[in-house]
Write a protein that binds this DNA or RNA. Sequence first.
DNA 1: TATGAATGAGGCTTCATTCAT
DNA 2: GATGAATGAAGCCTCATTCAT
Lengths: 215, 215, 215, 215
Amino acid sequence: MPRKAGSPPPSADGGDSKSQRTRTRILDAAAHVLSVKGFAGTRLTDVAEYAQLQAPAIYYYFPSREDLIEEVMYCGISDMRVHLERKLAELPPDAPAMDKIMTAVDSHLRHELELSDYTTASIRNSGQIPEHLRTRQKKEEAAYGRIWQRLFADAISDGEIRGDIDARMMRLLVMGALNWAAEWWEPGRGTLDGVVRTAQMWVRTGLSPAREAHP
Amino acid sequence: MPRKAGSPPPSADGGDSKSQRTRTRILDAAAHVLSVKGFAGTRLTDVAEYAQLQAPAIYYYFPSREDLIEEVMYCGISDMRVHLERKLAELPPDAPAMDKIMTAVDSHLRHELELSDYTTASIRNSGQIPEHLRTRQKKEEAAYGRIWQRLFADAISDGEIRGDIDARMMRLLVMGALNWAAEWWEPGRGTLDGVVRTAQMWVRTGLSPAREAHP
Amino acid sequence: MPRKAGSPPPSADGGDSKSQRTRTRILDAAAHVLSVKGFAGTRLTDVAEYAQLQAPAIYYYFPSREDLIEEVMYCGISDMRVHLERKLAELPPDAPAMDKIMTAVDSHLRHELELSDYTTASIRNSGQIPEHLRTRQKKEEAAYGRIWQRLFADAISDGEIRGDIDARMMRLLVMGALNWAAEWWEPGRGTLDGVVRTAQMWVRTGLSPAREAHP
Amino acid sequence: MPRKAGSPPPSADGGDSKSQRTRTRILDAAAHVLSVKGFAGTRLTDVAEYAQLQAPAIYYYFPSREDLIEEVMYCGISDMRVHLERKLAELPPDAPAMDKIMTAVDSHLRHELELSDYTTASIRNSGQIPEHLRTRQKKEEAAYGRIWQRLFADAISDGEIRGDIDARMMRLLVMGALNWAAEWWEPGRGTLDGVVRTAQMWVRTGLSPAREAHP
DNA sequence: TATGAATGAGGCTTCATTCAT
DNA sequence: GATGAATGAAGCCTCATTCAT
């Protein structure tokens, strides 16, 4: 019997039983539909079609539509955090604070645009989903936010970000620019590398302390 | 008999007949609900409740739910463009290109955060609404985009924005940062002026030609 | 103030006040719509449009949709009876029984096809209308039927209709043939006179006592 | 999955799966309600109740109310034609033309009064149903009409029907008399055999060439 | 494990009807 | 006499969910 909702994220372990794979297929489908149609517009029929099975089959893997959606929302942000943590861990421990931020920008954009409907689903539907479905997600979101917060704080105390700004606001603006990319970016138009580089440039030069004073 | 959908934007003229006001109340309510619940989640019952009447009354003013939503979407972006054009027209004709961009940032944020559920509705639901409801909106969106495009182009040719970037990408990142503000900003936390100033600063210093060479 | 439902048929008296004429216009419109759309399909909006006024205006002349329809149904059959009685009265009192039947056929067809949506409405909807709306109509229908019944009875006792048939059945078949004409006849195709003549011929030769025995 | 509308007539084959039977039950119920209440008066709730299930279940078998009704209308007239063709085929090939007409009268009346709500529904609602629901039905109707037309034409050229009449009109009057029988006949009052015999008699003697000339 | 069949809740929409003007 | 505005009841239809197989 497959795991109940609340169990590890789909891609987590090596549970490659057929059952486990079907569950993942459903979750993927849900993420896809959710990212396109929004919370209220996500019909189990559509999810089922995308996952190539009949709607009632979903109930074998998830107790209800809400549970399914809840898990998509959770995975979206959770995967994102895991991804970021992994990338940061790959940096030399004494890397400059600004470099870490550049890594975060890179990680965020790539994960959002390349890897996953989950993130888009998670991002786009944050505002539309009933509170009680967001408990786990909000916790993850906060955790993810805290990582960024720390990066900014470090950068400020290291003098790599100008000190005369509202750090929280700045961070939210930055993350907004990145989140919104999902709304306009399409593989056909400009490379993903290009987006990453442009965003990094904007963040780096936009946040660096001014140099007018020097001369 | 009230005007059909396709008539002047709600706040437009002095159509202060009681009928005209009811129509506007419904449109406002729809914008509100739409911005919170998304396209599929927008129920006429909720719109009606918010507008303080019974659901069928809506049909006296709009031929269908879709027409109502279509008009909200259209007004959202259309008002935004009008607002921006007015602000730009108030500037001295020979104002520096970057100042115009600052004005655009200001106009966008204030209209989005202060004035109107319409914009939020329009922005948030762009991706979820069936194509056939977006014809008018897309035209307006393009027009609005073209204004920004021109501002960037002028700034580049005047040397006020560094020339080594992909202008289109840059513009989309900027607008994304502004759009996303609706997702996190709330009046209680930080002033609107603060958001505007922070955003302007980021844009100005982020896009200005590098100054490293100077000293 | 106009007369309540239950008052004399529209075209009855000389009540040519504007009010009386509007009432008649509504009744005519209702007859028309009813004959085309059937009982449940008859919307006050359509009736109003056909009568060139707004739906609520109908309530000034009729207490309810049902009352309006009831009156149409009543008038349809009632006019028919009046028409027939008038035509029969014009015959010489000693006219042969079969001639009277020919007159009845003529009267029925002409009234149905030429004069009036009322009859068509009345005929077509007999089976679809709730019982309580048919009280007056049924009484008239019975009265109209009795006239025909008498004509047949007289003809039989005079030996002008063969005696070896079920008179009631025969009469119902005949009236059915006439009633149904409304379903297929259209002015463009064949003259009304032609229909009348054909029907009369069929009835006369079909009902006459066999002549084989004579020679 | 049950067949879509447009599939074989209900009573057609031995599709005795439970699903096939439910579909037939719904179709039968629709025919019944339609024949009593008319097109606009036919509510899915009533159909469902008569078929002993809940209204939404109908959508498992038919895409919409209109499709359901369309199929009833089609089956009504189609079954009628099949029935007639079968009966005619049973006659010896050299049967007199008038005998064939007698068979047609018999077939029409029995099918209409004895077998089927479908026919009554089809007949009664011809005039009330939107054109686009009658495409298939009209084709069948025409085909059915052509059979009768041929029977009349043959009878005339064989001298079994008098030649001095408008054959089309005559045929329509005859079919009208038969169609209308559904409006008045009830099992309690007079036998079906009686109706058939009376109608046949009327048609035979009414259409036969006159014999006055003989003596 | 998965599907065919069915249901109940709820949303959009229509329409007779009312009421103030 | 007549209309603009609004409402309540009811019908069609969708969809999450269940259950037997």
